[in-house]
Amino acid sequence: MLLELQGLSVGYSDPLIEDINLSIKNGEVIAIVGPSGIGKTTLLRTISGLVRPLGGKTIMNVEKRGGLGYIPQKLGLIRHASVEHNIALGAMSSSKILQQLSFLRTTAIVVFLYSLIGSFFQMPFSTIFLPFSALAVLILTIISQWKLNFEKQTTVWDSMKAVQLTEKRYEPVRRLSGGQQRRVATARTLAQSPSLIIADEFLSELDEENVEIVIQSIMNLIKQGSSLVMVEHNLQRAKKLANRIWMVSDGKITEEVIGGE
């Protein structure tokens, strides 16, 4: 089982949805349907680990780093950064080498700070550590950037191609249309290639052409074994895409099995 919700209650101070007992397998598409303000987004945020559950628990069998891809309602893009940079964030979270480099660099920064402050107060080893830690921070930063550039050449380029945004590679995201921005968010998830994708109304406000591009790209990931949990207001589209529909009403979820494409 990829995700298991056991007696889960979600909300902020008062529960919005209670006693959720549902599960998701690999390669499944789940559409969450229900009126606005009923707690769908809160449920997604709870599953993503951003909000503490009010009760029950979430058991997730995905990798801690890069295993979960989250597309928030507001997309979560960095407006002033380029399309490439935004997509590279996805590739970064799925890269183990970058994680190890990041850990080493953090350690080197901590040692450097100790040496810097320590040399002023004449703390032990501080003057010996100072040049070595500074050199380590520099070298690790260069290696991380080199590795990230390599990712940009391969994974990021493929994801950009899938959502047809290669021409906008260096454009700041703020200059793109709403539809193009949604495609960037999709490409970020593609570059990450997570086991579980959580998407909050990611098809809303899109024209038919953009919907087709985004669905095609995500469905390619599903075919490779990823699962998708999405909030969808268009019931027809939800029935077309999803294997199961979670209907939210009166603080409870009822499940409807569809079959999906």
Binding site: R45, S48, G49, L50, E63, K64, R65, G66, G67, L68, G69, Y70, I71, P72, Q73, K74, L75, G76, L77, I78, R79, H80, A81, H85, A88, L89, G90, M92, S93, L98, Q99, S102, F103, R105, T106, I109, R188, Q192, P194, I198
Partner: peptide
């Protein structure tokens, strides 16, 4: 700063320095 980019990167498992250098600095650069 907007919380959505932070949430998206935190949910994907990026570390604190990675989020700071790749999300926070570009977003608040101005």
């Amino acid at each position: 700063m907007e919380s959505a980019p932070l949430e998206a990167s935190r949910a994907t498992g990026l570390s604190h320095p990675e989020i700071f250098t790749n999300v926070v600095i570009p977003q608040t650069g101005n």
